[in-house]
Write a protein that binds this DNA or RNA. Structure first.
Lengths: 293, 293
DNA sequence: CGCACCTTTGAGAGTGGTCAATTTGTGTGG
DNA sequence: CCACACAAATTGACCACTCTCAAAGGTGCG
């Protein structure tokens, strides 16, 4: 592949339907085809985006205002009072946590189908600044109406809880990544996460477009820009991926997945031994076996 | 203070009201005094624990079964289907995430007033194993009845959302800690977290009892046991804390707080410069200033 | 077309991990 | 009741991964 080709291709991939079918997976089935982005979104649109099957039942005809956010602009600022929850219709964001002393950390990359603002419910203020990484569109759900909406439409309530729950689990994964994995492992896991999210909307998990800079990735994964770059280079040298700036092509998903836990901080001597043991805490005779009931 | 005294004192601190007033803060006011632990908990008990003011309005007379969990026993196992959410009445737990390859990571320490099982809603299975670190009691809220309960009592719904939101924010803090802070900073932040949680129920944030082992802390903070121990020793040598096995006494909260960001991985040359700048992303002429509206 | 920013790559230094030994406290059994 | 055994915790020495510093391509936008 010639230099720049993959790059240009990915850059084209801002629109939804214009993707090269070969590269970005087959076109999504009807369930995944999302509505046009206009001035408003219906309740059905929102539910569809959140991943809850657009049941055929009659939904209340509530409409939500859409809002466009330009690259580099903030959707919400940290410490700003909670007004709306937002559902990402298109584009992607970064969620930056800024500590009093100035240290910053990116804690999430909200993308299409993600809910923004759940972390603001406690405290009634957005804890993080949410900035658009590219042109993006969101639907605004007024928080004040949330409870009445949930009462009106049980699906919405369920969708909300599921979204938070999913976010919790995703954060666990990140914590694990940063906690126990080495540099390459973290990057691999990051790619895996991106792939999974792309696949959710019918895109290929093997041709990834990174809307964020290396600095953003570094912050998210708790490492330095240089180390992120080196990890990419190393994985590419192993023939696992192909890196073209903001576009990653996964060449060998199989081996890539195994590469994730390969290097835990400093290479573990032989994982086999550890695996043969009852995995910590279960082999103490003093404490009876765990039993749930 | 003689050796062992602080230790014994803390060990005594399993019961709720028996705390030495001088050491563990004044007795809590009525709002924080929690009900006895019997066979069942009322809705009011649960709401109180979750931190929502026990409004005087008449609450539905729903009662929840309590369950006792012995030290080392699991409340729920990973991958087990979601049945109940649990509110911790007393004691503390560790939430362990186990990956397919055997690597483990502790992602949370549910304690009194915390909600367990929110992460299981998505997927309908508990993603982590929850083990009691000491004798503990929980109230079980059947998940199947959750929506009907929420409809019955709006306060519960609000409490649930707040609880998840708080957990999200707490996880952000942990991610930041593991991501940008050095070993000592992580431990300091951990102590700060424990202190804040103790203070929530009227206990002193300066005399901390650690229900978890060093290994648990290490896993939670993404470091090795030895480094945790070294961090404690170092902080003690600086006169910031006093360490007596599972009991920590904070001697200088002021300086301790400042010690948190002191060492970011490798000491930052001079944070002042970074602070004077508009904090990343705002100083590129190409992109207009962020404005929320 | 040139200035920024992003990205990559190299060299040296430091934090923190691994291995290992010692101390201390807890629980069990003599 | 005391001794033994085991787990938890502490401390030291060595080394590797990753951070910092530094500089050179590469892109895209003004």
């Amino acid at each position: 592949m010639k230099a720049g080709e993959l790059e240009r291709c990915a850059a084209r991939e801002i629109g939804i339907g214009a993707a090269d079918a070969d590269r970005f997976g087959g076109t999504a089935d009807a369930r995944l085809r999302l509505p046009e982005i206009g001035a408003q979104s219906t309740l059905a649109d929102v539910l569809k985006l959140l991943g809850h099957a657009p049941v055929d039942v009659r939904l209340p005809e509530r409409r939500f205002a859409n809002r466009r956010v330009h690259r580099g602009h903030a959707l919400v600022h940290a410490n700003q009072p909670l007004e709306n929850l937002y559902v990402v219709l298109s584009g992607s964001f970064k969620s930056t946590l800024t500590e009093a002393e100035g240290s910053q950390q990116i804690v999430a990359f909200p993308m299409r189908g993600d809910l923004i603002g759940l972390d603001a419910i406690q405290g009634a203020r957005y804890p993080a600044t949410i900035t658009a990484l590219e042109e993006a569109n969101v639907a605004a759900i007024p928080y004040a109406e949330l409870t009445s909406l949930a009462r009106l439409c049980p699906y919405l309530e369920r969708a909300l809880m599921t979204a938070v729950s999913a976010e919790l689990v995703r954060n666990y994964q990140v914590m694990r990544a940063i906690g126990v994995l080495g540099a390459e492992g973290r990057v691999v896991r990051f790619l895996h996460e991106l792939g999974a999210r792309a696949a959710r909307f019918g895109f290929s998990a093997r041709a990834l477009r990174l809307p964020m800079t290396r600095a953003d990735i570094a912050s998210y994964l708790g490492m330095s820009i240089e180390t992120v770059s080196r990890a990419f280079s190393s994985l590419a040298a192993q023939g696992l991926i192909e890196v073209r700036r903001r576009s990653i092509r996964v060449l060998d998903p199989e081996r890539l997945g195994r590469a994730e836990d390969a290097r835990s901080r400093t290479a573990p001597p032989s994982r086999a031994v550890a695996l043969s043991l009852p995995a910590s805490g279960a082999r103490r005779p003093r404490q009876p076996f765990d039993r749930a009931a």
